[in-house]
């Protein structure tokens, strides 16, 4: 289904009172950084391009949130411009938080009330490396990958090609049709999209040409050598930035804010990079040393989440690389472990 740029804008205009619409805008401090903001029509939003600096989890699994009593009513939302790396991350979060015998109440409420309109990447940042994980820079629905988007937008000329990813997406498309005229994509448009896909893949391959895509992840768990890991983590200042910014990290602490028998619990993101994370009373910790915690993050992303959910805990978004004040590049860490 093809819809024009201007019609999409019209759609947002018309439904902005019924939905909280979040959409990427360039940051005022650095125009290369995109960040989700509430839709407003007096600034140019950016649907495609590349990932935002803030992972989509910040809107669905908030940095700090009261979980008891649970917030019963949340606004209906549409998040636009979610990239494939974040869709993959949502699959991990869904696997962790919406299980057969346990459902995280707040995440569920936000998830149920949010429509995800994803978009293809048309450019890439120097830290983007989805291709090293064999993920394309655009959502791709196949038999084994469900890809949690409701609708996806692909830019072709001054239009968007809309594809439907879910039942919720079908509903949303009906609503879009009320405000937009739609038509089928032409063969030329389809060819153009294929060429665009090839082009962005090529770009990502070039960005990552120093790194081998056939990385082995067992080396992370297998390598217990203190000297190796100490060297890899030598510059780490233990800020926890890499885990907070990671779209699949969901560790939390629970705080109690009860007043007498009116019980209140607040959950807040935590980071396995911080020394108190696994420390028990008495001071013992399974990962007392920084290099052990540093290694744990790699194990968690690449070995443990794979065992827990049959999914990679890393989606190649590169946010941890962009954010690290010590300049640690996850790709380099994994590469150098291959060579040990």
């Amino acid at each position: 289904m093809i819809v024009s740029n201007s019609d999409i804008l019209k759609f947002f205009e018309n439904v902005k009172n019924d939905f909280d619409i979040f959409i990427p805008y360039a940051s005022e401090l650095d125009e290369d950084n995109l960040s989700y903001k509430k839709f407003s029509n007096n600034k140019e939003f950016i649907i495609n391009k590349y990932r935002t600096i803030d992972p989509v989890k910040t809107l669905l699994y908030l940095p700090s949130e009261r979980v008891l009593p649970v917030n019963p009513k949340v606004p209906k939302r549409i998040i636009v411009g979610v990239k494939n790396c974040d869709l993959r991350a949502l699959e991990v979060l869904d696997a962790a938080l919406l299980k057969d015998n346990f459902v995280e109440p707040n995440y569920k409420v936000w998830r149920d009330n949010t429509y995800i309109i994803s978009a293809d990447c048309t450019e890439a940042l120097s830290t983007c490396h989805c291709v090293l994980l064999d993920f394309p820079p655009y959502p791709e629905k196949t038999e084994d990958v469900s890809c949690s988007y409701d609708l996806n937008l692909i830019k072709v000329d001054d239009n968007y090609l809309i594809t439907v990813g879910s039942k919720k997406g079908e509903e949303l498309l009906e609503l879009i049709k009320k405000y937009c005229s739609v038509r089928d994509a032409s063969p030329e448009e389809k060819n153009k999209i294929e060429a665009q896909h090839a082009e962005i893949r090529k770009k990502l391959a070039d960005i990552n040409s120093d790194f081998s895509p056939d990385r082995k992840y067992d080396v992370i768990s297998d390598n217990k050598d203190e000297a190796t890991w100490k060297e890899l983590s030598a510059e780490c200042v233990e800020c926890g930035g890499c885990t907070n910014i990671c779209p699949t990290c969901y560790c939390i602490i629970l705080n109690d804010e009860s007043e007498k028998d009116c019980f209140k619990k607040v959950r807040t993101w935590d980071s396995c990079q911080l020394s108190g994370y696994a420390r028990v009373a008495g001071g013992d910790s399974p990962r007392a040393k920084l290099w052990e915690r540093f290694r744990n993050r790699y194990q968690c992303k690449f070995n443990i989440m794979e065992q827990n959910f049959s999914k990679s805990g890393c989606t190649g978004c590169g946010r941890c690389i962009s954010t690290c004040p010590a300049g640690i590049d996850l790709r380099e860490v994994i590469q150098s472990l291959q060579e040990v």
Partner: peptide, 19 residues
């Protein structure tokens, strides 16, 4: 195995021992 725990039901991840 008395590990650090917050949630008690496999969300907070603090008590993870391998898988």
């Amino acid at each position: 195995m008395e590990k650090k725990m917050y949630c008690g039901f496999g969300q907070c991840r603090h008590c993870v021992i391998g898988k």
